[in-house]
């Protein structure tokens, strides 16, 4: 059974169709990234899956349950990492993590979780005094304390500095390695490429492409650009058989500054949402 199965999901706000027929299948243990520009329907879709929002139409099954009808036992299996929460400002990291652990039947050890997200040195600091990156790590701590089978991360690294992002990615990889199913939305293509087994691109409330980061939008089969420097300046040939092209070209001798490139995930993405 898939962790998430969505068919024909729709949601409108005051005449504006935010989600216009989304289908998704996410396997257990998979890391799945939803990409898309602002207003593409990412957050609305995810909030429906989390049980935070009603839907207008469509079938939704999350861990075998319809989120609109789900109860406590179902919520106990989820880990939701909020996007912009500023709660627990007057609780210390330690107090908050220990408190949230009490909600679950079989929580992780709070001290281990604090250590896992790298907040051991900040354990006695109040939530309101943490930096942006530390604050998000507290959000992750509260999201994983209940040993979730499925985690939702909505634009988790927005506003992070590069080092904090790398640390965060390592944490997500670790959770994925433990078998947690992860659904993340993001603006960052490198993030999707680094973390996701599969990605879907949402635009205008629909899935416009789906696949692995390596094959999305026909990326693997796209023409390659072979580029080198000759006495007449830079030369470029677009070809579906770059190996053959280079073999022919190199018969005349060494090719200076030779490169073979395929469209980056960013090139494919920008074409898809255009």
């Amino acid at each position: 059974m898939n962790a998430i199965r969505v068919r024909g999901l729709q949601k409108a706000y005051k005449g504006h169709q935010a989600v216009a027929g989304v289908d998704l299948d996410i396997a257990r243990g998979e890391v799945f990234a939803v990409l898309g520009p602002n207003g593409a329907g990412k957050t609305t879709s995810v909030e429906i899956l989390e049980g935070h929002r009603d839907r207008d139409a469509g079938e939704v099954s999350v861990l075998g349950t319809d989120p609109a009808k789900a109860g406590r036992e179902w919520r106990a299996k989820l880990g939701i990492v909020l996007q912009s929460a500023t709660d627990a400002a007057n609780l210390t990291v330690r107090e908050a993590v220990h408190h949230y652990a009490k909600y679950y039947a079989d929580p992780r050890d709070p001290e281990e979780v604090i250590d896992l997200v790298g907040l051991t040195e900040k354990a006695k600091s109040r939530g309101g005094t943490l930096s942006g990156g530390q604050r998000r790590r507290l959000d992750v701590a509260l999201g994983i304390i209940g040993r979730p089978e499925l985690m939702f991360l909505d634009e988790p690294t927005t506003g992070f500095d590069p080092e904090a992002r790398r640390q965060f990615w390592n944490l997500i990889k670790r959770l994925a390695a433990e078998g947690t199913t992860i659904l993340l939305t993001t603006h960052y293509l490198d993030e999707a490429e680094a973390l996701a087994d599969r990605v879907a691109v949402l635009a205008g409330g629909r899935v416009v492409a789906e696949g692995t980061p390596q094959t999305l939008g026909g990326r693997a089969h796209a023409d390659a650009a072979v580029r080198w420097l000759s006495d007449r300046g830079y030369q470029e040939i677009r070809t579906s058989e770059p190996t053959k092209t280079i073999a022919e070209l190199s018969r005349h001798g060494e090719l200076a500054e030779l490169t073979v490139t395929r469209p980056s995930l960013e090139d494919v993405y920008l074409e898809l949402i255009a």
């Binding site: 406590r72 919520r75 106990a76 912009s84 929460a85 500023t86 627990a88 209940g146």
Partner: peptide, 17 residues
Amino acid sequence: ADREDGTLKRLRGTPMP
């Protein structure tokens, strides 16, 4: 304030009744 700072949203995502 709980609604504004995300406390309620967070709690909604936990098994707390």
